[in-house]
Simulated scan of single mutants.
Amino acid sequence: MADTTQRVLSLLNLLQSRPVWTGAELAERLGVTTRSVRRDVERLRELGYPVRAEHGTGGGYQLGAGKALPPLLLDDEEAVAVAVSLRLAAGGTVAGLGEAAVRSLAKLDQVLPARLRSEVKGVIEATVSLDSPVTAVDADVLVALARAIRTPERATFDYTKADGDRRERRVEPYRLVAAGRRWYLMAWDLDRDDWRTFRLDRMAAARGTGWRFKQRDAPDAVEYVRASITQAPYQFVAKVRIAAPAEEVAARVPSTMAVVESDGSGHSVLTAGADNLDYIAYHVVRLGWPITVLDPPELRDAMRVLGERFTAAGG
């Protein structure tokens, strides 16, 4: 049975290495008869691999594309190349990544041998990026949290706050959210007994504890993180009514800067946080649409002062 399994894996490796093989070529490479090749091809088909067989001149066996991607058989060099690429993408040094990179990395990391794991780590440590499109995070942190979310199991990590205070946090992880230039974790904080948002670039030593938990009723992860990063950390939360449809305003305002909601009849409400109201006044005015300040009243004063500055500058 072990010999048969090894032969089937070898057959799969050959089919992945080039487009078409004749039965005789496969038999010679595997050291078996063409009849054995046909039986092994049937075994691959039973496992979900779409192996096509074409008769006649130019025909042979070909691994086709199926509805679902079957497992890939990678040699050492290929596995290292894929792992390095995924870690660079997940860590923020490759543009156009997504949550898919993190999921793929978590799956690959589970089956990567220790000898290859150390090789991947060496390549990553020797690699720098001239221009990173996002704030870099430790790929090991992403992998650990992705696993804990999938299980699900409680996790711990060391977290450094904006003021430099570093403490261990214990959470029930719920979702990873990529927003703008950063990664965030939405989790139930076990010590504060409430939902919290954590920046992954401030984390270290993330790990699952092995303690499973029953998932709680949770708010929408995207909306919760959006509100957390655009409003919660700031001294002021401003609301402004804009005479423009929400979709047009949202197209010009980064989702990490403000929340834009429809207000009916071609209007929208923008909600944003800041420690300096002059900052909000400037960015809202530069959008170019008529606005009405809803809250706080101090924002009206900031708008008036900004207008006086523009008038004085125009001479």
Rank of each mutant, 00 (worst) to 15 (best):
T5G: 07
V8Y: 04
L12N: 00
G23T: 03
G23E: 00
E25L: 04
V32P: 02
V32T: 06
V37C: 06
R39N: 05
L47R: 11
V51N: 01
G60W: 04
G64V: 06
L74E: 02
L74K: 03
E77T: 11
A79S: 02
A83L: 05
L88G: 00
T93Y: 13
A95R: 09
Q110Y: 15
V111T: 13
L112K: 08
S118D: 15
V120S: 09
V120T: 12
K121M: 15
E125T: 15
V128M: 14
P133Y: 14
A136T: 12
V137Y: 08
D140S: 11
T151W: 13
A155K: 02
Y159E: 02
D163R: 00
R166C: 04
V171Q: 02
R181I: 15
Y184R: 07
W188N: 04
L190G: 05
A206I: 07
G208E: 02
V222R: 09
Y224V: 02
Y224F: 15
R226I: 08
Q231G: 07
A232R: 14
R241Y: 15
V253T: 10
A258C: 09
V260I: 10
S265V: 14
H267M: 05
S268R: 02
V269E: 03
N276G: 01
Y279G: 02
H283W: 14
R286E: 10
W289P: 01
R300W: 11
M303T: 05
R304C: 08
